[in-house]
């Protein structure tokens, strides 16, 4: 018997001489991890329940709407109307997922592990924001794709097909607006506390508390006030932009009057403001 046969080889510590990738890869690692976290992937079964319940609801709704549209072409259920229908579900999704993405890191003290690596503080916030926005956009966009496929395959001719293409495009863009605004607000609120329950409550509160303002404004005697009312709550704000850009099913754009561009500007301003505050927040967190 050879001597080597009886020896257990401890290969010991191996140095790593392979590539070390740069900023883009590090960012995408954070982004992909965030996106997986949003849907509970790589985590416990309990963490998967809520996201996949929401996924189930949006796809069920999308499928039903697709069926309705196939039966009754003039029912008025457009792609953008689907997004509006899902508004409150998305609020709850953001309220649950945003704290999972950022409050958990604050609470568990993981940030020092991130910031002692070649990950920039700004990239941390951007990656989390991009992950949440993508998750919301997928929730609102993927069922639209289902609706589109059903409509496209049941289209009688090419012109009907192109009409559908012309409708789903704005629908997906509208979904992206929602995603950017909701993710921005949700993540900013969640980044303020390490307690997930507080963060979730705070996010829902932002959306709930602002709704009465819209209600009061819209019954004021001034028509200008009424037309500006929708500016004051995140969900009605995007709704206003959608109304201006794509119109509603019944062609009604009276409720925002001539202020369409203002609605879009405010939406962009709010998103930019959230991003700026989020960055300021992480500059503070990282140096503490």
């Amino acid at each position: 018997m050879s001597e080597a046969a009886g020896v257990i080889h401890d290969i010991g510590y191996q140095r790593y001489s392979g590539p070390r990738l740069g900023r883009g890869y590090v960012f995408s690692s954070m982004y992909v991890h965030g996106l997986r976290t949003a849907f509970g992937l790589g985590r416990s079964a309990k963490a998967k329940i809520f996201p996949w319940f929401v996924v189930g609801v949006v796809f069920l709704t999308g499928t039903i709407l697709a069926a309705v549209r196939a039966q009754i072409p003039d029912a008025g259920v457009t792609y953008t109307a689907f997004v509006d229908m899902m508004a409150w579900l998305v609020v709850f999704f953001v309220a649950v997922v945003a704290p999972e993405l950022v409050s958990r890191d604050l609470r568990a003290g993981v940030l020092p592990l991130y910031f002692s690596r070649p990950l920039r503080r700004t990239d941390y916030a951007y990656a989390k924001l991009a992950a949440l926005a993508t998750a919301v956009w997928l929730l609102l966009g993927a069922p639209q794709v289902v609706m589109f496929l059903v409509a496209a395959f049941s289209a009688d001719n090419m012109s009907q097909f192109w009409t559908e293409v012309g409708d789903v495009g704005p629908g997906l863009f509208y979904a992206a607006l929602w995603a950017a605004l909701f993710a921005g607000i949700g993540l900013l609120v969640a980044s303020l506390t390490g307690k997930r329950a507080f963060a979730a409550g705070g996010i829902v509160a932002v959306f709930l508390m602002t709704t009465p303002i819209v209600g009061v404004m819209s019954v004021m005697p001034s028509q200008t006030m009424n037309e500006l009312a929708l500016l004051f709550s995140p969900s009605s704000l995007v709704f206003g932009v959608g109304m201006w850009l794509f119109g509603t099913a019944d062609g009604d754009t009276d409720s925002i009057g001539p202020f369409g561009p203002l609605y879009l500007a405010v939406t962009i301003g709010v998103v930019a403001g959230c991003v700026a505050l989020l960055q300021a927040r992480y500059r503070k967190v990282a140096s503490s």
Binding site: Y16, G18, R20, L21, Y25, V26, M30, P118
Partner: peptide
């Protein structure tokens, strides 16, 4: 593994 990737290691590594 996640933190290894944040340090720049490719996925498999």
């Amino acid at each position: 593994t996640h933190l290894g990737r944040v340090s720049g290691l490719p996925r498999t590594a």
